[in-house]
Amino acid sequence: MSLKVNNLGFCYRPESWVFRNVSIEVPKGGRIGIYGNSGCGKTTLAKILASFISPKEGEVVVDGENQKREGFQPVQLIFQHPEKTMNPLWRMKDSLCESYVPEKSLLDAFGIRDEWMERYPIELSGGELQRFSIVRALHPETKYIIADEMTTMLDAITQASIWKGLLEIVKERNLGLIVISHEMAIIDKICDSCLNLEDYCHA
């Protein structure tokens, strides 16, 4: 059981590869860190893994099956900018419960308050919004989580408490985790192994 990537390549323009020949395997319950200079394709890779976009070559295999384009995606992506992932015209409770209704205990683990449910995204801070996008990604059928610069916009205390909450659930459910970050200190503390995506650039 693993999230496996074989010889993945992506380009926006023909033959101008962002990265090529990327092969990674994240076992169930494993934690891998990905870093590299800005512009080397970290977010693009994350979007391919979560099947928001299709690779130009190579394949993504989730627990032995080829990635499917429809239905629930067992690989869920948490974006860097939560304000860009919420419908601005929906109240938070509607964004949160769009795909499933989370249990009270999960909301408590991330300190989500009842009073925030009736608000619109613009009425919450970045840290508060990011808690919603994490809980939203923790659907019961989720098997792998990609955290793309999940806490760069947050202060150290909020950052530590959000990671603490997420890691407890990752451990409890034995989820696979990919951490994309520039902060090596975070990758060091959380991940079993890491890779530099630049090694696959301009191949």
Binding site: A156, I157, Q159, A160, W163, E183, A185, K189
Partner: peptide, 9 residues
């Protein structure tokens, strides 16, 4: 103290 370089979580 809560910086990832220090005690973090």
């Amino acid at each position: 103290k809560s910086l990832p370089e220090h005690s973090f979580m």
